[in-house]
Design a protein around this nucleic acid. Sequence first.
DNA 1: ATTAGCACTCTCGCTCAATGAGTGCTAACA
DNA 2: TGTTAGCACTCATTGAGCGAGAGTGCTAAT
Lengths: 353, 353
Amino acid sequence: MDLSERQLQILQAIITDYVENAEPVGSRSIAKKYDLGVSPATIRNEMSDLEEMGYLTHPHTSAGRVPSDKAYRLYVNDLMKKKNLSAKDKRMINDRLMASRDEFDRTIRHAAELLSEITHLASFAMTPATNEETISFIRLLPVDERTLILMIVGESGNVTNTTLRLNVPYTQEALDLLSKNMTVSYKGRTLDDVLKGEIIHDVGSDIEALSTLKGSVMPSFLRTLEDMLNVNLYMEGMTNIFNLPEYTSIDRARDFMELFARKDWFTQKMLARDNGVVVTIGEENDTMKDCTLITATYHVDGKLVGKIGVIGPTRMKYDEITSIMEYLTNNLSECFRLPGSTGDGNAGDKKQK
Amino acid sequence: MDLSERQLQILQAIITDYVENAEPVGSRSIAKKYDLGVSPATIRNEMSDLEEMGYLTHPHTSAGRVPSDKAYRLYVNDLMKKKNLSAKDKRMINDRLMASRDEFDRTIRHAAELLSEITHLASFAMTPATNEETISFIRLLPVDERTLILMIVGESGNVTNTTLRLNVPYTQEALDLLSKNMTVSYKGRTLDDVLKGEIIHDVGSDIEALSTLKGSVMPSFLRTLEDMLNVNLYMEGMTNIFNLPEYTSIDRARDFMELFARKDWFTQKMLARDNGVVVTIGEENDTMKDCTLITATYHVDGKLVGKIGVIGPTRMKYDEITSIMEYLTNNLSECFRLPGSTGDGNAGDKKQK
DNA sequence: ATTAGCACTCTCGCTCAATGAGTGCTAACA
DNA sequence: TGTTAGCACTCATTGAGCGAGAGTGCTAAT
């Protein structure tokens, strides 16, 4: 059963008002602020119907109405219009992303910062999942007679390295040979494939020295691959939520913060979400049933997919925030497009001791 | 003017009790719980004197006494005794650190985790500052005709790399030559020296190809060096403080969390602290005047110095916590001692896209 | 010097009533 | 038949008032 035009208007007014003021909204204030040409009494009747249909709730008998998750869902699907970003916000996004465009991880972190600054909510940004990343080459470099660096380079410029210390000295010859053999074996394979062991790990061991070296290197190789699969997660603006009326209770604030303390768990959750702009409201989330989560995806090199997101109470400016995220992810994807004449694909930092 | 033996006993009893229960402690409960052989009235008199001397405060007329920062300082300096860790805690520390000993950054993160789990406070751990790290060699590796990897290796096994994309193709010959030249120029120099420009950047440009390549690589080289200087900061157990009575007010909790949102600022603050176990109590801190901060240092390879720390309200178990930190840093230093026959010095992860 | 006794202070939790915002219903109206 | 005015009713919130309890500070006795 569909809602009448007037009911939609009233619902929209209630949502707008509630999102703005965070207080249950009464019939009288709707009638006054938004002139719908009807009296408070009429609005009351409609509100009563809307409540019966599940779009509104009542904190207690004599309070105004509050939109339900269902109302927000309707709003997001049908009612809201795309917003244009302010020139200031656009400029801020452009400037900040450009400033660090040649350092991948930093750009991602800036994206998270921008998101929380503009929305005044908690935000995050993740580097792309690299399951589908393919290996370009593998190189072993000498440091001293027992120490060497294992370096794995992906097709999209992704680089990981580990320092290994061996029990016995190695020869330069063995090192070069193993580098070559491993590259031949694994070039073009995805990280996932290699880790799932679908490829025979026997990279050949013609000579004695090579065989022992291989034995030392392979475990680290696999562990380093795993490490390459990890996405980096940057979170920003967690403390923004303290300014919101829904988090004045210590318990709610604690619950909220604890969500983000479990970074690994959180990362997995976010990776599992669909691509594009995705909004999940309140009960639609399996955890954080009183939050809304909005995620969006950006592309690197047209292939790898990373995510950014915003988390806040269900009461949020859906129209503005989704517009911002769309703009931001478009810009990010632009930054990370490979073939462009302007430099890109350059890279974060990875250090190790 | 020194405190009498009895005053010290009473002060200690008050601190112990307050640290345990977080409530102002009265003369009667001291007399009952700790038998000092004197009546509440006597204790009251002594407490009054202690208050006059600044060791105790009074939240209001008819409440018990609360130890002041000065009291905690006296306790830390003179009164407290080293605690032995429980066998369980020791085992936990050993196991957890050993499990990841060959992955540096993960070990550091585990240290922070352990610290917050055992103390039930907020904790952090930082990778060592690398100002004094010296360069071992520099290597440029080809990816495709315009893409290359710049790799900087430090003497202590520290590795950083960046992917560069050039506007013009390069030759393998130029690449090798530049690698060699740069290594010759910078080998043995500390990162700080190179960045401060005390070394002439002219690495020679005999041939045309080399000269243009150099022009593209040098800016990234310097930026990558800067990046190598950054320490990684891992924070754990931030939400633990929500369980403490001093943070039931949203405002205090917010202030606390905001401290840690400013990671760069926080890192600088921590780097500036002295080595060894350092305790700063309440007003002794320039920010966080109602917190106590305890930091301790571990060593890598006997040279580089990293920090771990605990942050909580001034009411904390100083004796236990300092003992735990001592034990933990000793263990960490042990893990990272270079020459040991057991593998170490192995390495974190650094990825980049 | 120590202690018992006692008046005094201040917080905390409770109840109670007033306030006010907002509803739901009924009856009048167009 | 849909809309509106009017009014009784509900319920959260606020602040005042009161009693209980914990703890001190002072005085006088030991």
